[in-house]
C-alpha cells in the first residue's frame, strides 16, 4: 500500500478538531493562511468555495464537513493545505481547510496499521492506514479518494473503531 516498500514515508500532519490526520508529503504543494473564500452557490456544503492562489481560483474543501466532524471555523491556526492530485494526464489542485497544521513526520511502514474493517456501512477506503506516533493515532488519508469522491465520509466511527482495536491489542 505504501509507495516504497521498506522505506519510511513522510507525511504532513494536521488536525481536524481533536483528531490527527496525515497526507503524503508528495501530494502537498503549499500551505496557506486562510484568506477570503468566495462562496459558490449551489455546490455541496463541504465545498466552501474558491480562493485566489496567485491568480488561479482554487476550490477549497472543508475536511471537517467532509468527514462529518462539524465545520472548520476561522481561527489564528486555520490553514489551507494546497494538494495536487494527478488525474489522468492533468493535475487537479484542491485546497483542504484544516484547524491547524502540525509537522512533517516520517513513519516507518511497521508503524502503520491497515484501516479497521468496518463492514459495508462505513467506508474506510479513503484511509490508507492508521499510524501511531507519540501515543496518538494518525489517520493517513488516501489523497486521490478523499478529494475526488463526492460523498461525506464518516470519520468519527473509524476513529472510535481504531481506538478500540488498539485497546484490544494492548490488553
Amino acid at each position: 500500500m505504501m509507495q516504497e516498500e521498506g522505506a519510511g514515508c513522510r507525511f504532513l500532519t494536521f488536525t481536524l478538531g481533536e483528531v490527527f490526520f496525515a497526507l503524503d508529503i508528495y501530494s502537498v504543494r503549499e500551505i496557506l493562511d486562510l484568506q477570503d473564500i468566495t462562496r459558490i452557490p449551489g455546490a455541496q456544503e463541504y465545498m466552501r468555495g474558491v480562493v485566489n492562489v496567485r491568480g488561479t481560483a482554487v476550490p477549497v474543501m472543508d475536511l471537517r464537513m467532509k468527514f462529518g466532524l462539524g465545520r472548520v471555523e476561522k481561527t489564528l491556526n486555520t490553514r489551507v493545505v494546497i494538494v495536487e492530485i494527478k488525474k489522468n494526464d492533468s493535475t487537479v489542485v484542491v485546497g483542504a481547510m484544516a484547524d491547524s497544521v502540525k509537522e512533517v513526520l516520517e513513519l516507518e511502514p511497521d508503524a502503520i496499521d491497515p484501516p479497521p474493517a468496518m463492514g459495508a456501512a462505513v467506508r474506510t477506503d479513503f484511509i490508507r492506514g492508521i499510524g501511531k506516533h507519540g501515543g496518538r493515532f494518525i489517520l493517513i488519508l488516501d489523497v486521490d479518494k478523499v478529494f475526488t469522491s463526492e460523498e461525506v465520509q464518516d470519520v468519527a466511527r473509524v476513529v472510535e473503531e481504531a481506538a478500540r482495536d488498539s485497546m484490544a491489542g494492548a490488553a
Binding site: I40, G42, A43, V50, A57, P59, V92
Partner: peptide, 18 residues
C-alpha cells in the same frame, strides 16, 4: 478562469475571474 472540475456540475457558472 475556468472553474475547477469539482464544480463542473454547476452549469450556470461560465467561469471565475480575479
Amino acid at each position: 478562469k475556468s472553474l475547477d472540475e469539482s464544480y463542473r456540475h454547476l452549469k450556470w457558472i461560465a467561469g471565475t475571474t480575479i
